[in-house]
Every structure is written in C-alpha cells, then in structure tokens.
Design a protein around this nucleic acid. Structure first.
Length: 213
DNA sequence: AACCGGATCGTCT
DNA sequence: GACGATCCGGTTG
C-alpha cells in the first residue's frame, strides 16, 4: 500500500484549529520542487502560533504587510525573514480571516539529500540538514519569494503528502523556542520523541543589556 | 556539551 | 533606533 502513503493533503487538512493541525503534521512529507531539483523531508518538529490569542505570534498585534498571509486562507505558505539573514517557513491553518500558522522547525531529508547538502555545505551529518527552522528553509531552497505560495493542489513548488503520520504515543509537547513573555508558557511546540533530526531545545534567553560599568 | 559573541537588516515602536 | 519564532564558529570544561 505504498501509493496510499503519499497522497497530497487537501486544503481541508489545514482548515482546522492550529493546535489540531500542528501535531498532525508530524511525520508528513513536505516536497519542494525548484528548477535545481526536488528536496523532500519528513516533518519532525513544529510550533503552533495562534494569532488572535497568542502573544508569541507575529499576528498578535494585528495585520501588517509582513503577516498578511497568516490572515488569508489555509494551506498557504508564510515565509518571513529574521536576524538579518534567515528565513523561516509556516503553513497557514484555520479558516480565512483567522491568523494562525504552524512554524516548521525541523525535518528529516528524504529525497534530494545531495541538493540539500549543496545548499547547506556546513551541515555535518545528514540529520542536521534541516535541524532548525532556518536550516530547513535553506535545505529546501525557500526564501521570501515563496511567501504566500499555495501548498495544496498540484501547484509547484510545494506539496504536503500524507506520509506516515507520527505514532501519537511518540509525540511530545513543550514550550516554544525563542518566544518570550506570556506566550512562552503555552506548550505549543510538538516533536517526535527520539528523532535525531529534532533540534535541541533552547529556552528563550533575553539578550542582556550591557550594564553601564 | 555548554556557553559566547558576531553576523546582518526588515519590521515595528 | 532596538531587536528578533537563528545559525555558526570559536573557546572552555
């Protein structure tokens, strides 16, 4: 039954509450096909961001040109640029008008390991190719130009396949990485326990102000 | 393995 | 004008 394991996920998959979609994405296969070739990966770590009630979300303070896509229909890709050099990628969830999305934090590269390694020459082991949200986008070849792209249907470059959903008993949850303030407490980070491609947990550490002495 | 600082710029205050 | 949903290379234990 191999064919059954790789059906594309339709828009209805994403048209649910972000906290339901996020763990359900674990084990799914994200495919990115560009002129240079295809890289696919099995999602192993994600984070839920729920715009309306979530102080950690980019959308919390309302609609801006950057977060526009989060407010649109589900199944689309929200890409943002951060730290002056990195891109991170989300899949928009919930109905049109809501502003929630799932940040893709890590994955295991399945197809296109060679291409991914060309894009990430500093990676050590293969498991590190997409270990971390900015590493994941780099391995896939994703930049700001794909903000707003549709991840459902037959359109390139993205599709999300059913893959083999993670065994629910292996799914762990915890606080989100890099989120400070009230939103930090909510355990909306999901990962597959024991998977080697899951990025090591780092608690948010506010940058210290240099004291005057 | 853990910790530190530098890189680098769009976004919002 | 400050800082971020980060990564990397260096150093120290």
């Amino acid at each position: 039954m191999l064919g059954h394991a790789n059906q594309p996920l339709g828009r209805e998959f994403f048209d649910r509450h972000v906290v339901d979609v996020a763990p359900d994405l674990l084990g799914r296969v994200l495919v990115c096909t560009l002129p240079e070739g295809t890289v696919s990966l099995r999602l192993t770590e994600v984070e839920a961001y729920n715009g309306a009630d979530d102080p950690g979300s980019h959308a919390y303070r309302g609609r801006t040109p950057r977060n526009e896509v989060m407010f649109g229909p589900p199944g689309h890709v929200y890409v943002y640029f951060t730290y002056g050099m990195h891109f991170c990628m989300n899949l928009v969830t919930d109905q049109d008008g809501h502003s929630s999305a799932v940040l893709l934090r890590a994955g295991e590269v399945l197809d296109g390991v060679e291409l991914a390694r060309r894009r990430r020459p500093t990676a050590g082991r293969d498991r590190q190719l997409a270990q971390g949200p900015a590493r994941l986008t780099k391995a896939l070849g994703v930049g700001l130009d794909f903000n707003g792209a549709d991840a459902c249907g037959d359109r390139l470059p993205f599709s999300v396949l059913t893959g083999t959903p993670a065994d629910p008993s292996l799914i762990r949850t915890g606080p989100r990485t890099g989120v400070s303030g009230a939103g930090a407490a909510t355990p909306w980070r999901f990962w597959i326990d024991g998977d080697p491609s899951v990025s090591p947990y780092r608690a948010h550490v506010p940058k210290r102000r240099r004291s005057s002495e």
